[in-house]
């Protein structure tokens, strides 16, 4: 798993075997626990102020660096996607699209504020402006049927906006995701900005949605009981809930800044003029 810039095993010492389509053993994967999640939230909270305070330019540079590092380790990513069941051709396309998406959102880090911020023409003699600020610690249940591209598409817009994340990786396809974590680790992404727990949604979803130091929760599955559970738990501390339902991760619809805006708060500042 990836937590606070380190790669620990689960404190529970539990694991699950990962097999390929034919049932051949690939690797043992950590089976993350509630305690792992809580530790990850602590690491994320610690990283939040620093990441949110990075200049927009610097966040863009770091995201672009991620894409460069992905390019450098593309063969490994493709090989893991193949192990997870992709055809070599599909794996190649997935890795390349994932890299393109990172570049796409890297470019937004110093622009979405200009698109979604305003100077508001108030009637009194005040200067008044609104700008987006990151929501804070976001827990994310990554799309479970997807591997690299689904993971990248879900978390990159969130961290591009200055948030930090604790993510549950796909239970059945965690390999490329974990390599992606190594890429993050070597791309100047500060430890704690992205934290990844491997394990089972069934076990983790209630913790992901009920933790009182998490500000928003994102999930992707089309599962009505999961949705109800997450939305109910979110009410404990008025978390924002974002349900991302993506039909096609390759479509152009995945490229827009509203995906950043979803996890932003709008702050409005007033100051008198002329006194």
């Amino acid at each position: 798993m990836y937590m606070g810039g380190a790669f620990p095993r689960s404190e529970s010492e539990r694991y699950y075997p990962l097999n390929d389509k034919k049932g051949n053993f690939i690797a043992n994967i950590c089976l993350g626990s509630r305690k792992d999640f809580r530790n990850a939230v602590v690491a994320a909270r610690k990283a939040f102020d620093g990441w949110a305070a990075r200049s927009a330019y610097n966040r863009g540079q770091i995201l672009y660096r991620i894409a460069e590092m992905m390019e450098g380790r593309k063969d490994q990513l493709v090989a893991e996607l193949v192990k997870e069941g992709s055809s070599p051709k599909a794996a190649q396309k997935e890795a390349e699209t994932a890299i393109d998406r990172v570049v796409y959102f890297a470019g937004w880090t110093d622009k979405y504020q200009q698109v979604f911020g305003n100077v508001n023409p108030v009637a009194s003699s005040h200067f008044n402006f609104s700008n987006p600020e990151p929501t804070g610690v976001v827990s994310v249940i990554a799309p479970q049927n997807e591997s690299l591209l689904g993971f990248v598409q879900t978390i990159i817009p969130i961290i591009a906006g200055g948030n930090v994340v604790v993510v549950q990786a796909s239970e059945m396809k965690p390999l490329a995701t974990l390599t992606f974590c190594e890429i993050l680790h070597s791309s100047d992404v500060p430890g704690g900005v992205v934290n990844v727990i491997t394990g089972k949604t069934k076990e983790l979803a209630s913790h992901f949605s009920s933790h009182m130091d998490v500000n928003a929760v994102v999930f992707c599955e089309d599962d009505s009981s999961l949705k109800k559970l997450i939305q109910e738990n979110a009410s404990l501390n008025v978390k924002g809930v974002v349900h991302r339902q993506v039909k096609d991760y390759y479509s152009d619809e995945n490229e827009n800044p509203y995906l950043i805006l979803d996890l932003q708060e709008i702050k409005t500042t007033w100051h008198p003029v002329g006194i």
């Binding site: 508001n120 009637a123 609104s130 501390n237 702050k267 409005t268 500042t269 007033w270 100051h271």
Partner: peptide
């Protein structure tokens, strides 16, 4: 960490100015 910040003023409202909160 708050949605509306008043600097050298307080409790001002305007239809063009967004209002709403962070956290709870």
């Amino acid at each position: 960490r708050a949605g509306v910040m008043w600097a050298n003023t307080f409790n001002k409202f305007d239809p063009t100015s967004p209002f709403g909160g962070y956290k709870e």
